[in-house]
Nucleic acid binder design. Structure first.
Length: 287
DNA sequence: GGGCAGGCATCGA
DNA sequence: TCGATGCCTGCC
């Protein structure tokens, strides 16, 4: 991926697969919003960024140093997504989903933030998850100013560990609040060590994540994929399950996609949820 | 008001 | 090992 660094902007060009609206809209992140001028503004961990989509790629409003240290990794800039899409040509459903989702990138998010947001996600829709996450950050996250506005970092485990679940009531997260506080305490106690976890093979990482209360297979796979960059993780929710049973009736094994399984999953998920209306069957899955 | 949602834990067969 | 049920909340 090539870029031109100017004063406080980074312009990506010759990018085949970099579409903010696809990337931010496919349900992997919850702190990015489109602005009235059409740009995107988001906060990841303790960093904020404004991003503009252009026909050639995208413009990042940040220094080259920030781009190299933070955002290039966050946006998974080293991966050739077009090549992954091409590799799906023999897979009828997978290739249709990938064509529809071209431009999606798997964001490499902070493990703690990812774990929390996907705990919040259970039995919830994106709008509600975003609301819960924003209330969580504005109440318990460190304030900072960026792009001329007040922002809040994602709350640190050490802060959250000191809270009682009842203190999260204003979030309106319901029974999930207790899971968050318990997870924070597990991090602070050292029972959960993200650096150690990041060195584990995916299956073992997922096994350990599911030891946490409120973290099942689905949340663990999402955390592995979006928080640890484990692109062989393959989260299966009710929608993916429905699609797999229809299109892979003879059985399905995500390991056929190897290290791209999680990326294929995102293409499929986005296609299932946002595929062209009018071409859907009764269960809402595109034909 | 009852049903349901991008899930999990618990309980009983 | 599997199916049923409750859980907070918000929307239909």
């Amino acid at each position: 991926m090539r870029y031109i660094a100017q004063e406080n902007t980074i312009q990506l060009f010759e990018v085949e697969d970099f579409k903010p609206e696809q990337t931010f809209g496919c349900g992997q992140c919850f702190r990015w919003d489109i602005q009235p001028d059409g740009s995107w503004f988001g906060i990841a961990g303790g960093e904020a960024l404004r991003l503009c989509s252009t026909p050639e790629g995208a413009v990042f409003h940040c220094t080259e140093e920030k781009f190299r240290q933070v955002w290039a990794r966050y946006f998974d800039c080293g991966r050739d997504y077009a090549e992954i899409r091409r590799s799906l040509s023999e897979d009828s459903f997978g290739s249709r989903a990938a064509a529809f989702g071209a431009g999606i990138r798997i964001l490499r998010q902070d493990p703690w933030e990812t774990l929390c947001t996907f705990i919040f996600s259970q039995c919830n829709n994106i709008a509600r998850i975003k609301g819960i996450v924003e209330r969580f950050c504005s109440r318990f996250g460190a304030p900072f100013e960026a792009d001329g506005r007040m922002c809040h970092a994602f709350p640190e485990p050490a802060e959250v560990a000191l809270l009682e679940p009842e203190m999260l009531e204003p979030l309106r997260a319901g029974y999930r609040a207790e899971y968050i506080v318990r997870a924070a305490r597990a991090v602070v106690s050292g029972e959960v060590d993200f650096d150690e976890l990041s060195r584990l093979p995916t299956a073992e990482l997922i096994r350990q994540l599911t030891q946490l209360r409120g973290v099942g297979e689905k949340v663990a796979h999402c955390t592995a994929l979006f928080g640890f960059g484990k692109t062989d993780a393959f989260p299966i929710d009710v929608w993916i399950r429905r699609a797999l049973s229809r299109y892979y009736a003879d059985g399905f094994d995500p390991s056929i996609y190897g290290d791209s399984a999680g990326i294929v999953q995102q293409y499929m998920f986005h296609y299932i949820r946002n595929g062209i209306e009018g071409r859907q069957s009764a269960d809402g899955i595109p034909d």
